[in-house]
Amino acid sequence: MSAASADTNPGARSGPALDLRVLGPILALAVLVLTGAMLNDNFLSYANITNVLSRSAFIGIIAVGMTFVITSGGLDLSVGSMAAFIAGLMILVMNGLLPTLGPGVALVLVGMAAALATGLVAGFVNGFLITTMRIEAFIVTLGTMGIYRSLVTWLADGGTLSLDFGMRTVIRPIYYDGILGISWPIIVFALVAVAGEVIMRRAAFGRHAAAVGSNDQVARYSSVNVDRVRMLTYVFLGILVGVATIMYVPRLGSASSSTGVLWELEAIAAVIIGGTMLKGGFGRVWGTVIGVLILSLIDNILNLTDGVSPYLNGAIQGVIIILAVILQRERKADA
């Protein structure tokens, strides 16, 4: 059995031509698209597709970062609250500087910088507590989740933080406009996804993240700086939460304590549907993108269809998530 030399016998067990682990999520997405197209004529319209892709962008951008965190064996439950907190802070910063800077591109850039910087710091805090202080990621991010959520409630005084009206027309195009008929959130999401996929597959950082998630001892003994890799995944995710928030704030120009509720779970679900292993060691960014699209399409199709009680939306989502994961399960080979 082990006698076959490495380069003479590549075909025997190199895997079947149709690998369900790869095809599973794509298949689920295709089924959803077909169902949608059959149920409603407007499903494939330009407007609907733009709507679905744009609104996927927030979760999608975050989920790309989450893919790296989960691949390296971590978890981040704080991203939803973090997004709300960053949105609140971004609004406060822009409102506060409006009298000095006036409504214009400069102020928007300051707001963006504030969002990215806050995301970076928030990600660093999570990473620091997890790597340097050696506290479980689940506990750390559960804690910061509560902290950011109550900070935004406090900033908003229990209500809603709204961007000054004069600023809204200036910032609005970030969500609604684009180039060549493709809106900015879609463009940014696509860029983040492509960059993420390339880093995961072709950069040393992606390889190191998978190694750390697969077995951090092996990584350490292979001269990989395990703490640094872990830290970077959280910082990277924090910055992406900032990017997602930059897309989010222009949409409604407001943030409240109900902003970003359950985004963390949607992002994690998308990552897992996409085929990344929850226990770490293997991740794929393109799968995450498909996972995000599956989740938003389910909502979209349910809204476009009559006949299903809206009370059952959650149940249908749950079934589809579980099915998508079952579809791609590795059939246990004898070994």
Binding site: A204, R207, H208, A210, A211, S214, N215, Q217, V218, A219, R220, Y221, S222, S223, V224, G281, F282
Partner: peptide, 19 residues
């Protein structure tokens, strides 16, 4: 436990320390 990533292929293991 410390030498090789058992779930990965030979190529990934071979180059891990000198990526």
């Amino acid at each position: 436990g410390r030498g090789l990533l058992l779930a990965k292929g030979m190529r990934e293991n071979l180059t891990l320390a000198s990526l």
